[in-house]
Amino acid sequence: MSEHSTSVGFYVMIFIILLLLTATTVGAAFINLGPLNPVIALGIATTKALLVVLFFMHVKGASEKMIQVVIMMGIFFLLLLLGLALADYGTRLWS
């Protein structure tokens, strides 16, 4: 694990960034951007999730292969959920 990620100040900084991003999500909800609304909301949510996984869960800098395998599995199963559910939503109107 790299040195900088263990200091308390670093975690506080990540925490503040997360709060700011939450505020951005709330703020963006008041602006009508049409089809961009979900794109922005999901983009912010993904960024936040990345921050949590990389820093709070110590994935960034982790050298163990096993951690990478576990993370990849999580992402793989999330893609399964999204992909197969979208197989329904994407084709529902065809019939």
């Binding site: 197969l84 197989a87 329904d88 939503y89 994407g90 084709t91 529902r92 065809w94 019939s95």
Partner: peptide
């Protein structure tokens, strides 16, 4: 649900 997804 979509018939096509149901097939899958």
């Amino acid at each position: 649900m979509s018939v096509y997804a149901a097939l899958i």
